[in-house]
Design a protein around this nucleic acid. Structure first.
Lengths: 104, 104
DNA sequence: GATAATCATAAGCACAGGCTTATGTATTGG
DNA sequence: CCAATACATAAGCCTGTGCTTATGATTATC
């Protein structure tokens, strides 16, 4: 998956919200629909787009479709950003603290 | 600057390319134009969008406009991604090595 | 087995946004 | 000054895309 498709996919606010929602845990399309002001087909279309971008995966069970986020799908985006962020130094100290905490 | 506008701004491939080009160093609009297949107004419009998103800043000198990338502008995007990437553990060790090297 | 429920796909519409040409505004040079 | 250069803005077009309603395809329920 190229970062181009990732940017394009995540550019839509509703689609981003769907992804964020799924990051909180697996969910059916109906469950998702309950949280948004758009129709069920709209949700399904967003899910198809997210799936195409590798940001989401599904699990069918009976007549339900359970979707969950695929955070690894964000990797190409992270890679792209890291090439240009150029402000690592400012965050190194904070990062050190985080890592120090993880050792204990 | 919200991550929403950042995603929207970076969704366009040409605009991303302009930003990447400017990350290589300061440049005038004419210089930029030379590298793309689009018209000068198109470049100016992209620059205005990038500027609005905090990804670029300009410096006027005579009749030239020198633009340069503002990598810090990517911060909100990084913050958003880090909330969902979920694969930090895989990179912690590599990160530790990097930080260890910086201490010396 | 008919009906209902869940989800996907199709078709069509309406708006957003990126492009072009045309023009405006400074600035430089002859 | 007048022309040319560098850039920005305006207006309009055209494609992409996100939405809706309608319908199709499965699976559960009675």
């Amino acid at each position: 998956m190229t970062h181009a498709e990732l940017f394009r996919t995540l550019a839509d606010p509703t689609r981003r919200a769907v992804f964020e929602r799924l990051a909180g845990g697996e969910m059916t399309v109906s469950d998702l629909k309950a949280g948004f002001e758009v129709s069920q087909p709209a949700i399904s279309q967003h899910l198809a787009a997210l799936r195409g971008a590798g940001l989401v995966e599904e699990r069918r069970q009976g007549r339900n479709a359970y979707y969950r986020a695929r955070p690894e799908g964000l990797a190409p985006l992270t890679d792209w950003v890291e090439r240009y962020r150029g402000f690592w130094p400012e965050r190194i100290e904070a990062l050190k603290d985080v890592l120090k905490g993880m050792d204990q």
